[in-house]
Design a protein around this nucleic acid. Structure first.
Lengths: 256, 256
DNA sequence: CTTGCACCCTCACGAGGCGTGAGGGTCAAC
DNA sequence: GTTGACCCTCACGCCTCGTGAGGGTGCAAG
């Protein structure tokens, strides 16, 4: 029988000696036998097992799970692999999103803000609405439901052209405010106040009813609290969430 | 000035209190000031900074790098973001590959080995050749160069149909051997020996010259040592690298 | 047999990014 | 003044090894 030392096994399997020590320590891969001198000796069976370990490790499966996995037979291994496949897909999608965000951020930093409305503003339409709705009701109670229903109707009765125009207006307002942030303009200043008034008007239009100071302040809280909004605003400019909401609150306070 | 406690800042930024403590410890985000009672108080400036930190953290940038990053101005940040974008792309591709490997493995485990030759065997053609070449020369010295050149010519002068047929033959041999592994057949047995003879013949054909016992044994070493080959064989069946090479060595030994 | 060198062993700390208590002050409202 | 809800500072744990320190072992050449 060919017996491999740690070094040899390490060399042909591509791991380090320390890794073999570690796997021995945690009981994941024990040597075929240990010499009187304390040397670890591995045989073919261990090499096979190690290769299976490394196969699964590739996918980021933690070592203790690999240990359990190897006790199972083929049937169950397929199931586990499939579950892990989903995780990998989720990760892959996440990376794709991150890359997109970077691209947008760089475009923004370079002043090439020619991004299409449909891109950055799509978060406001379709499927996401349900999620926001559930969130708002949970947070603000049932009295929110009417407002939501009204907003949905208002959006629905807009033509596509009108929606586009509305999004353009929102975009302009936000870009102007972001410019204020970049220039270090006080969010409570008069200049910002004027843009905020436009923003509030936009909100009122979207809701299809007046937007009270209280409601506007509540909206600022929503922006601060819901990760989707935070992400959206931080994508426009880091720190923009706080800048916008501070300005909104200041505006609401003046009205009170 | 509004001063936020740890809890409050944690709530609106979505991190935990412990994280704020940690960031303070490592100097990444220090409070605006600390009360006499030892309480940390944060203001808008810190919130802005925290949001930038979280923005970058999303991409997996380590905290110490984020700290350096935030000292830079916009220009350099773009450069860093671009560099990180590449890392993300590499990761995304890696995940895509892993998913593919899982799919193939599952297909294999379920006996649905209907994978296209071009898929699993593409590793043997085109760009990868240069890499193997460099590796072989580094490992076996210049005397390897002639062999490589001959193999390349042999492959080049094959028609596409011939290449396909060759790949089919290799595939059949490997599947038969993998079946031996699954059934626990001794890799030194006569049954395996017969398949190995076919394998060696295939190699000789690919090299366009006889494959000596010594060369065949050396090839087994290559399979064991080069990660690409290991990965390829482990994809066919975990443990197949060792099974195949053991059989190859046994075959070579009988000839000597 | 000695010398040397490559290999083997066992601790044990470190890194990254916090989670999770333990043990004990502080603040605001009732 | 008493409750809670906060706040603080240690300090260990997690996970997978990397990286020494300090010291024994095996094999070949001189």
């Amino acid at each position: 029988m060919k017996a491999l030392t740690v070094k040899q096994l390490a060399a042909i399997s591509g791991v380090t000696v320390r890794t073999l020590h570690h796997y021995d320590e945690i009981g994941l891969l024990k040597p075929a036998y240990v010499g009187e001198n304390g040397y670890r000796y591995y045989e073919r069976e261990q090499l096979l097992r190690l290769q299976q370990i490394l196969f699964h490790r590739e996918f980021g499966i933690p070592l203790n799970e690999i240990a359990e996995l190897l006790e199972l037979d083929g049937e169950d291994q397929v199931g586990l692999l499939l579950r892990h496949r989903e995780k990998l897909e989720a990760e892959a999608r996440r990376y794709a999103d991150l890359i997109e965000t970077i691209d947008r951020t760089i475009a923004g930093l370079q002043g090439q803000d020619e991004m299409k409305n449909a891109d950055l503003y799509k978060g406001f339409s379709a499927e996401k609405q349900d999620e926001y709705e559930a969130w708002l009701v949970e947070r603000y109670g049932d009295r929110m439901k009417d407002d939501i229903a009204r907003t949905k109707k208002a959006m629905a009765k807009m033509s596509e052209a009108e929606q586009k125009a509305a999004m353009q207006e929102l975009h302009d307002v936000e870009q102007a405010l972001a410019e204020g942030l970049r220039r270090g303009v006080d969010p409570a200043s008069d200049a910002v106040e004027r843009m905020i008034a436009r923003h509030r008007a936009w909100v009122a239009a979207a809701w299809d009813r007046p937007c009270t100071a209280e409601a506007y302040s509540g909206l600022a809280d929503l922006y601060l609290s819901h990760p989707d909004f935070v992400k959206r605003y931080e994508t426009i400019e880091p720190g923009f969430t706080d800048y916008l909401t501070t300005a909104m609150k200041a505006h609401a306070a003046r009205q009170a």
